[in-house]
Design a protein around this nucleic acid. Structure first.
Length: 586
RNA sequence: GGCAGGAUAGCUCAGCGGUAGAGCAGCGGACUCAUAAGCCGUUGGUCGCGGGUUCAAAUCCCGCUCCUGCUACCA
């Protein structure tokens, strides 16, 4: 049973919310850092908003262009298309495996994206926000390619450190101009690059500085994450620099003008447009080509961008400037960028190893425990560390022992003692005095502690929901799990396994209440644990999917037949820690 | 260099102006429905260092030390 993605995205009520997720470079598989940084928080947020009845559209796609894809292709002797296709397929499988519920996951290699990009390019050119100028660049004659700054190394003109990159010296921290480097050499071929002039289009970022500052400083951006807001403001106050948005390459979106056949629009300008083109593609595919307006031109829409922190400038400066240039499109409502996830203390990185590859993980373990462990340790305010020891601990102590066991013990006692059905608590009216309909519809007589537990569950929908809405996933998860703890306490206090022998009404009430509390928890935890909560939902005798029932405690009705449950999570042996750490190669 | 975040119990972290908190680990206990899970109690901290503001600071301000990250042409 798959925890289906878009139960309600086609619904016409609720607020339009665009969940935009960073576009992964199609030059390698995805790893845990990608999941914790962008895809998981976006998915949790999207699932929550769908349950609230909002019109969610979750979009992203593979970034098929860019130097790394080309470089990888050359290393393999393959075409960039082949490299991109391979990893695009990998991404799709990974998202399916982890239940990342995109409404559309497309790529930048589509006719639609090229058209949308070229259209915006031409309009910005007409507006004067793009202009043409000559630029002097380093050219690697051996590799036959102009070199991005970071692909050039040499001696730092400030500190004489040999190994400075074209953009920055790692030794003294100075920001460099690639042309200043002494004895430059290409990282691609080790050749000495030569200077060549080339005409390019530039984005007139400097023209947007004031408008961007005003926009960021507006009151409603005070709840942006401090690191996102401060970084952006700092950048704006330091002064923006017009950037070239075209390159002398052949893999990318063509420039829609004559005489530029050897150049392409560069990824950092083009990829962010993907949010818009993906929305348009989705709308067309759903038979309503104008449908994209609901998220992009209706000011009531909310647009949230889930990215890693390295991506902040593109989403809080460059993309907003492009949207301002257009003038009709909504600016980002929030950019809740995450910090980095470190793996046992070292940075997760495609290049440096020490990485948990997601396709690899899925071959050995279930998705929900990973979603849970990452959500519980999500790098929301600062870098967070992932260790396998902590993963096993959270799986065993929190998912198995506290939550899974709660579900299992309640279902088991109930089925054994009440004929496999949800028992009925005693009602307020005593039989004999009234009868028939009056008796059948009288409210249940619940003890104060029963009432208190259900109240606590219901109240948690507000607090936990608010946390999901503010993209504070750790807090949301803590709040929900505390309620699971309260349910365990309640059970111990009421000891229904004893009460069944002496006072069946007492036990009936306890189990009825516990089942209802679990029903609430299933909904509350569903955004984080979509697979296992769906199973728990079915164990409770509910029909359909968790998501469709909405953001509220769905009542478990007395008399409902309970199917035979199975364990939601499996306990992991401690040996997993050593095995996986060996695999990490740390 | 600039900027940001962090430094709190053995471990992972929360608290961010009002007598130090959680989970795990450790110790003790009562129970036994459950994937030997759950529940109750308990040991344990001069809240990185030095100043300052305040009736009151882990919490605000200044300085310092250490760690991590970002620094827009590898998105």
């Amino acid at each position: 049973m798959s925890p289906n993605p878009s139960d309600t995205s086609a619904s016409t009520s609720g607020q339009a919310i665009l969940v935009s997720v960073g576009w992964p470079y199609a030059n390698n598989h995805l790893h845990a850092g990608h999941l914790a940084g962008a895809y998981l928080p976006a998915d949790i947020f999207a699932r929550y908003q769908r349950m609230r009845g909002n019109r969610v559209l979750m979009v992203s796609g593979s970034d098929s262009h860019g130097t790394p894809v080309t470089v990888r292709a050359e290393q393999e002797g393959a075409t960039p298309e082949a490299v991109f296709e391979r990893y695009h397929q990998s991404f799709l499988e990974t998202f399916k495996g982890f239940g990342i519920s995109f409404d559309i996951f497309t790529s930048t290699d589509t006719p639609n994206h090229i058209e949308v990009t070229q259209d915006l390019f031409l309009r910005m050119l007409k507006q004067g926000d793009l202009y043409e100028a000559e630029q002097e660049l380093l050219y690697d004659a051996t590799a036959g390619r102009f070199l991005p700054d970071r692909y050039v190394e040499g001696i730092c003109p400030r500190c004489q450190f040999d190994g400075a990159r074209g953009d920055q010296c790692d030794n003294c921290g100075a920001t460099l101009d690639v042309l200043e480097l002494i004895n430059p050499r290409s990282k691609l071929s080790d050749a000495t690059p030569e200077r060549r002039k080339s005409r390019h289009f530039f984005l007139r970022l400097t023209a947007f500085t004031e408008r961007l500052i005003e926009w960021i400083e507006r009151a409603d951006h005070n709840n942006w994450r401090p690191h996102v807001r401060n970084f952006t403001l700092g950048m704006l106050r330091e002064g923006l620099i017009d950037r070239a948005i075209t390159r002398d390459i052949t893999w990318g979106v063509p420039i829609p003008l004559e005489g530029y056949e050897s150049k392409r629009i560069y990824v950092w300008f083009e990829a962010v447009i993907g949010y818009l083109s993906a929305t348009k593609e989705w709308a067309s595919a759903n038979g309503n080509p104008d449908g994209w307006h609901a998220w992009w031109t209706d000011p009531a829409a909310r647009t949230v961008y889930f990215i890693g922190k390295d991506n902040v400038p593109f989403h809080t400066v460059i993309w907003p400037a492009m949207l301002m240039s257009d003038g009709t499109l909504n600016l980002p409502s929030d950019v809740p960028a995450n910090q980095y996830l470190t793996m046992s203390g070292s940075k997760a990185s495609k290049s440096r190893g020490g990485v948990v590859w997601l396709p690899d993980y899925l071959e050995r373990y279930d998705p929900d425990p990973f979603r849970y462990a990452l959500a519980a340790a999500m790098p929301e305010t600062s870098d967070a560390d992932f260790t396998w020891a902590e993963y096993v601990r959270r799986n065993n102590d929190e998912l198995v022992a506290r939550w899974g066991n709660l579900v299992n013990r309640v279902l088991t006692i109930t089925r054994r003692n009440f004929d496999g059905r949800v028992p009925e608590p005693p009602r307020l009216l005593e039989p004999g005095i009234f009868s028939g309909d009056v008796l059948r519809h009288a409210p249940y007589r619940l003890s104060p502690e029963s009432r208190a537990l259900l109240d606590r569950v219901d109240a948690a929908f507000n607090t936990v929901g608010g946390d999901y809405d503010r993209v504070q996933m750790r807090r949301a998860l803590t709040g929900a799990m505390e309620v699971a703890g309260a349910a365990n306490q309640y059970l111990d206090t009421r000891a229904p396994w004893q009460a069944v022998k002496a006072d069946r009404d007492h036990a009936a009430e306890t189990l009825y209440v516990a089942l209802n509390a679990i029903s609430g928890l299933v909904t509350m935890l569903n955004p984080v644990l979509p697979f296992t909560t769906q199973r728990a939902w079915e164990y409770l005798g509910h029909e359909g999917t968790v998501g469709i029932a909405g953001w509220r405690r769905t009542p478990v009705l007395a008399g409902t037949v309970l199917p035979e449950p199975g364990p939601l999570y499996r306990k992991l042996d401690d040996s997993v820690v050593a095995e996986e750490e060996a695999r990490l190669g740390l």
